[in-house]
């Protein structure tokens, strides 16, 4: 939880492995993020946390292979996972990344480095290309047609709720088990430790029980999925 003094507080994910320093990648979308964007280098902000449950690193390490599916601003939290995977001995991974336009693609400079990793296959797409775009066009789920989904793969997806909904649908069609689909939900959060109730989703509090869930855990909740 980051506080901009005099403005408010909002929850964010790490976009790097968090040590003494960490990075967070923040899109200007509301009051707090707008204020964060206006801050000058050296400004002080408030930090509380970390809260909640992280990606299941041990499980992923022992998986047969990993498919990482990112949508738009969903890439930053997955970038911390990618960094961790690269720094440790993880199974092969396929990274699928979609954004609205080429201009919306984040961490573009990292793509070449990621693709060079012998254990990594990476595909990128945009919903709408521009004059200079020579890559894939279409929503992120279309990338599944261009890869061979390994057996017993674990899928990790982060992105807008509607995008994750279709990724989950596609994965189920491809035979991925609900317990092997890992999503990170976003919700309004106020306290971060299970008191305020703002992040209630079915029987869960996203701040405490999540934000990382398996699809198996949330499939019966009549919310966005």
């Amino acid at each position: 939880m980051l506080t901009v003094f005099g403005v408010g507080e909002a929850p964010f994910a790490f976009s790097s492995i968090a040590g003494k320093k960490f990075q967070s990648t923040i899109r200007k979308a509301g009051t707090v993020t707008e204020a964060l964007h206006k801050l000058k280098v050296g400004s002080k902000i408030g930090i509380r946390g970390p809260f909640g449950k992280p990606f299941p690193l041990d499980e992923l390490k022992n998986a047969n292979s990993i498919i990482i599916v990112a949508g738009g601003i969903g890439l930053p939290p997955l970038r911390s996972l990618i960094q961790y995977i690269f720094a440790n001995d993880f199974p092969n991974q396929i990274i699928l990344y979609g954004a609205r336009t080429p201009a919306d693609l984040l961490f573009k400079k990292k793509f070449e480095k990621w693709k060079k990793n012998p254990k990594t296959e990476m595909l990128v797409t945009v919903d709408n290309g521009d004059a200079n775009w020579k890559g894939n066009v279409g929503v992120v789920t279309t990338l599944f047609d261009k890869i061979k989904v390994p057996e017993n793969a674990k899928v990790v997806t982060v992105g807008p709720a509607i995008m994750m909904k279709f990724v989950v649908k596609k994965c189920l069609e491809l035979g991925v088990k609900p317990e092997d689909i890992i999503v990170s939900l976003e919700n309004r959060m106020t306290c971060g430790y299970g008191k305020c109730g703002n992040c209630a989703y079915g029987k869960y509090l996203v701040c405490k029980d999540g934000p990382v869930f398996t699809y198996e855990q949330i499939k019966d909740i009549q919310g966005i999925f």
Binding site: A29, G30, E186, N187, R188, T190, N198, Y201, I224
Partner: peptide, 22 residues
């Protein structure tokens, strides 16, 4: 802090108008 209510749309509303409880 003030009382909030889970039947309000604003209860789950995130920046950019996103919500899991539409």
């Amino acid at each position: 802090r003030v009382w909030d209510a889970c039947v309000l749309e604003s209860f789950n509303l995130m920046a950019g108008g996103h919500t899991l409880m539409p």
